[in-house]
Design a protein around this nucleic acid. Structure first.
Lengths: 337, 337
DNA sequence: TTGAAAGCGTTACCAC
DNA sequence: GTGGTAACGCTTTCAA
């Protein structure tokens, strides 16, 4: 920066102002810009962060980057935050709360301006770290009973109940559920809960649940899960899957067995992945705007940042937003159920 | 840090050493650790980076986080770099070289220790920025004629030729190609090039190419692309798709039309996505180890870092690795072709 | 094994 | 509109 200042015949402060886009005389600004280009100068973000006391980072934690659900959410977040000069620090927790805690701990070293994480469940230490960090926090993809700060999501249980009601509305009464075996996928567990609640509420008798494979259940688990279901309850007339992935696997297995979908058995998914609209038959599913969860989360965080800036200026106390943004979902009726 | 030092009755330097895991007497170390825990102290990475002159960031640029190909590569990179304390800064270029340039420019402000990017094509300014940055650079997913520094990838054209040879080996002679319409997906263009080369080499007559939809072609373009192909060349006996995504769309369209795959028409994909093994029929494809590209890239970068550390210690000149790592691929014969 | 001082490259703050 | 100075919170370096 000194070099640039010298070449332009100004002080470092003026260079700093040019870079920040503050009030500088047009002529001066141009000279400085020329010097910057000539030297190929790139300002050091670390120095800026240290000096100003504010980084340009936002941290986000997702269970998996491999799921299009969460990569869409990350893209949405990026689209909301990048225009404000925030660089995303992405942590892939691999559905592991301990790993989430380690990642949060290491991310906090970078002093992120705000934090987004997935789900309502975290280790006590994670919660403590987040609260102590003093930055805006949004939990996504769920509506926690006791949010850390704000939340952007929906009730996975209610959404699942709606799908069961859709199926019963189409006349299906012997409805099975396919999901993952482990408890790690909290959203999946909520959907199972919703299924069980609705089956009970409608007096549909014994629930027909198959849980197979690590959570979240993958495409390839769909086939064996369907087999297990049909073996235990051969008269099943509809299957609700924890995600479109497993629904797809189940449908492909029906092809192999020569079962017609939905003629012999109806199959529904969850998430409205790209494949659901493309598969033959097209898959009936619950549509959730994953990208929108990202953008809404970004907006919520930006609002909290703006507010805390204002608060700082007015020397008032730190504001806690504690807002819950409810995300819409809809059952999309397609061919498979 | 001063607070921690005061509470532990030591100097800041000792606290710093404890955090860095350097030589500190066990008793002292324990006292300091206690103070850290008590105060919930989190070291500031920006200050550390500024002071030491080295950040803990690695930058990676991918065309899209939505593609499982690239998210797998990112996961592989993470697995290689995270254990070395490097935090990934991920840039989603959206297949846009101008956007890549902007992202590189803004990433460089964070002084990444090393950089990975996708493909061989970049704007001149991007190349210049990367070279001037002086940090190790790896280009992934391709083998550039003139790499910026090092490369980890394979020849998409050769891989495509191998698939054509596989198909002709199975007796197919009237082979079509489905791909995206735009030039942005360089890897896709290379695959098309390979197809054209092999069709010519084997004297198979007029190439049967359908290019449809933005690149990279999605699942939903597979169906209309197949229709267009069959309309123009009704006697086509095999279709090679630029990716498993479009192959899937094409296969589903065959289901709808009552065409048997591969009985009436064979269909092959590229990439060995999860769905390829799960679809009915299972999809013949070219398997590429996307995750491995990430880990190999990480290892290449780490080696370059270690070397440049050594070089610094020996006061020798900056080393340029200029290594090309060739990634294996194989045609996986499955049911669809 | 530990400590003191000097700086890293920027921005906040206050003069001019 | 511009410049000087003092931090920001660490690590490097050197000395004890």
């Amino acid at each position: 920066m000194s070099d640039v200042a010298a070449l332009a015949g100004v002080s470092k402060m003026t260079v700093s102002r040019v870079l920040a886009g503050r009030g500088v005389a047009p002529a001066t600004r141009e000279r400085v810009q020329l010097a910057i280009d000539e030297l190929g100068y790139v300002a050091d973000a670390a120095a800026g962060a240290l000096s100003s006391g504010r980084s340009a980072f936002a941290a986000v934690f997702v269970p998996s980057l491999a799921s299009s659900n969460f990569s869409d959410t990350v893209r949405g977040l990026t689209s909301a935050l990048e225009p404000h000069g925030l660089q995303l620090l992405i942590g892939d927790t691999d559905y592991d709360l301990e790993r989430e805690e380690r990642l949060v701990r290491s991310m906090l070293r970078h002093q992120p301006r705000c934090i987004a994480l997935t789900g309502a469940q975290h280790t006590p230490a994670t919660r403590e770290l987040l609260v102590r960090s003093g930055v805006p926090v949004v939990e996504m993809w769920d509506l926690p009973a006791t949010p850390i700060d704000a939340a952007v999501g929906f009730s996975n249980a209610k959404a699942a109940r709606e799908m069961v009601r859709y199926l019963t509305g189409r006349g299906y009464r012997r409805i099975g559920f396919l999901g993952g075996a482990s408890e790690l996928d909290r959203r999946g567990m909520e959907r199972l809960k919703g299924y069980l609640q609705e089956v009970k509420a409608q007096g549909m008798g014994e629930p027909r649940v198959v849980r197979l494979g690590e959570s979240p259940i993958t495409m390839s688990h769909g086939a064996p899960a369907l087999e297990a279901l049909l073996q235990q309850w051969p008269d099943t007339d509809a299957v609700m899957c924890v995600s479109d992935m497993s629904a797809f696997g189940a449908i492909m297995q029906c092809h192999r067995r020569g079962l017609s979908v939905p003629g012999d058995i109806a199959i529904a998914g969850f998430g409205n992945f790209e494949m659901a609209a493309c598969c033959s038959p097209t898959i009936t599913t619950v549509s959730v705007d994953a990208y929108g969860i990202g953008t809404r989360t970004g907006e919520t965080l930006l609002a909290a940042l703006a507010e805390s800036d204002g608060a700082a200026r007015h020397a008032s106390a730190r504001t806690s937003t504690r807002k819950s943004v409810k995300i819409d979902y809809t059952v999309i009726a397609r061919e498979s159920a």
